[in-house]
Design a protein around this nucleic acid. Sequence first.
DNA 1: CACCTATATGTAACCCGTTACATATAGTTC
DNA 2: GAACTATATGTAACGGGTTACATATAGGTG
Lengths: 325, 325
Amino acid sequence: MPTIKDVAKMAGVSVATVSRVINNSGYVNEVTKKRVEQAISQLNYRPNNVARSLFHGRSQMIALLVPDIMNPFFPELARAVEDFAKLNDYTFVLCNTDDNPEKEMHYIYALEQKSVDGIIVVSSTVTEKSLQGIHVPIVALDRIVSAKLPSITVKNRDGARQAVRYLKQLGCKRIAHICGPDNVSNTKERLGGYIDEVKNEEWFLSSYVVSGDYQYDKAMDATKNLLKSHPEVDGIFVANDLMGVGVLKAAQELGLKVPEDIQIIGFDGISLGEKITPSITTMKQPIYEMGTRAAQLLIQQINEPNQQVQHEEYEVTLVKRESTK
Amino acid sequence: MPTIKDVAKMAGVSVATVSRVINNSGYVNEVTKKRVEQAISQLNYRPNNVARSLFHGRSQMIALLVPDIMNPFFPELARAVEDFAKLNDYTFVLCNTDDNPEKEMHYIYALEQKSVDGIIVVSSTVTEKSLQGIHVPIVALDRIVSAKLPSITVKNRDGARQAVRYLKQLGCKRIAHICGPDNVSNTKERLGGYIDEVKNEEWFLSSYVVSGDYQYDKAMDATKNLLKSHPEVDGIFVANDLMGVGVLKAAQELGLKVPEDIQIIGFDGISLGEKITPSITTMKQPIYEMGTRAAQLLIQQINEPNQQVQHEEYEVTLVKRESTK
DNA sequence: CACCTATATGTAACCCGTTACATATAGTTC
DNA sequence: GAACTATATGTAACGGGTTACATATAGGTG
């Protein structure tokens, strides 16, 4: 790989002049500039970004950490962040953490040491304490990490209440809830919204709440067990769409018709929800907008640190589809 | 952020000694070592990876370029690459290219300039020519880029033939094919396999082949058109599972029962295929194995460049599910 | 003509590690 | 005691850029 020195030598100038040409800074004679440019193209020279990063302490790169790359919700978020990053001349990279605290911190450390300019995290295991000594700007997305980190989330509790109310309105008499892992902030909020709406119903049983861990398989198993022991359940509010697909599968395997025998409403609004049959009614998050906004907040923070910490909450909207009547 | 100098100053030694402690190289007195380690932990010092990368010319990072992060096939591949990378102490990052030649080359350039040690690409637009002047080791995955690049693929033609033969065996009399974008190597191979099996059938029509561009939406539209103009079609071989889901949706929207009225077989073996109802019969690729092997080949190439170029082809296996009888 | 400014270019320090090489001391061997 | 070795540590060059500062020339102003 040619270096700036090679270019300087070939063009018969100093490295400073070459640098000026590359960065379009300072004074450079038009004729000299041409000569340098020719040398650059002849040598097929491209400046070494590592050297640049070392000098500047920044790399024009941002990263997104997601807990589960196989849940389509996160690739959709990633698309948004990526697009916004590209528009702002940042290289975007995606990292998968499995919601594993060690992997998360490993990535955060590794990325900071690589002078990544900022990180967006979807995490439920990162804590304020574990972030001590970390200097990269971080924005939390989808899940709140700490009051000190800017965050982009949705009104989970509110959305959950809407979902349950809608099921009631459709005539459901016994509504169950498949929730996420209990350490995730939005699990608690969505569960809270469900409880708000059912706690005063005389039919409510605490065994109507089961965890599906935000995973397809677990949600399917959990639903089968639930419906076997509680055949009276005629509506399920599922904490995310991926689990919604599992719930659907479980119902179908038990010979139940959706939505005739049992109605299902999910959360997230991933595109998978409308691809399948029956398509899943859901509380849709503005995924693209959220990813974009998180990237925007991050880049703002990179450019001007010590900004006021913002917590933005987006609305969710009910999208009626085939899994409800 | 503290630097090695700060540590050296605090421990009362030279930077060389600190470096020796960090890297466990050369001679360091036990007592000195303790002192240095204490200074490190007190300052919460972590070596700057950019400086290391600059010196060594390598970054212990590899990347995977995929054309469509929203197609679950690629996150599944990514998982495999990531796991293998981690086992070998490489940081792994994922980049999305949209199969857009500019984005692809942009990433390849950006990554090389960041001293990324190697790149695995799933690409149909990168050419041998566009790779001139690129020095990072590259391995092609899922799609062949050039004879000069090591590649990991599957026996697409063979798999396609198996799929079509299976549909015939199940009694299908008119078998159509939804193919991918025509510039993708495996599109041609899968189409080729289909043609092999149907070209001598007296019922075969060239209009039985339509493109779904490897996308859900397009596949759904294409299938609706196909089935409207050719209601006699009773079997479809779909070139990937994501499109398979779209084909399923199209059939259902037209009031056709799967597999009673029409049988569907996909390709890839993504887990989504078994999550939905009816689950999709498919030609399963050993996705995890392929990703792992690609990462392994890449790391081999990083450690010993100028290895012999290898092209490995994996077998695909028929997985019978509900979309066929 | 003296002085000032805009233009043009080069020199060298700097970013932060790594490591070849130099230097120094203690212990061993003959 | 001289010579050698293993241990211990420091100095400075290096990787590939960027940029503050120094220097030089041409043209303009009073």
